[in-house]
Amino acid sequence: MPRVSRWYVRTAWAHFLVAITWGALLLTYKAWPGLGAWVWRLRGWHIEALLVGWGTQMILGVLFWWLPKLPGGVSRGPQAPVWLAYGLLNAGVAAVVVAHTWGWGDGLRWGRALEMLAGLTFAVNAWPRIRPLVRAPARPRRTSP
């Protein structure tokens, strides 16, 4: 697994751990409302972390790893857009989380815009790689003298 994919996948699992912790607290709150109404404010964070922070980020990380390499079969293409997409996506998730949890009105707009830019930036790398897998011709076997 290439380094940039490892960053995506590790960050995705970190979001996952946060999301399931908030999810468990939300479900506990349904049973014990005495836990405090503050728990319900974590709902937006739970959903965002699970669907974008974990699901989408995991898909992008694995896509960079698994999509066919460029013609020649050596390069996965330029990595700069993939790193940029990583930053934009996580900044977007953070903005949406702040908007949902602490009521930053513009956060939702900024967050979604950053996430959209992340998708477009990632596509710069991924789009040319969505192509048939062409295997390099097999090397001739060495015959014993």
Partner: peptide
């Protein structure tokens, strides 16, 4: 709630060392 949470944690415990080259 906490059974599902424990499932997630258990899986991450397994998969974390496999995020590698």
């Amino acid at each position: 709630a906490w059974l599902q949470w424990a499932a997630g944690v258990a899986f991450v415990v397994h998969i974390w060392p496999r995020i590698r080259g």
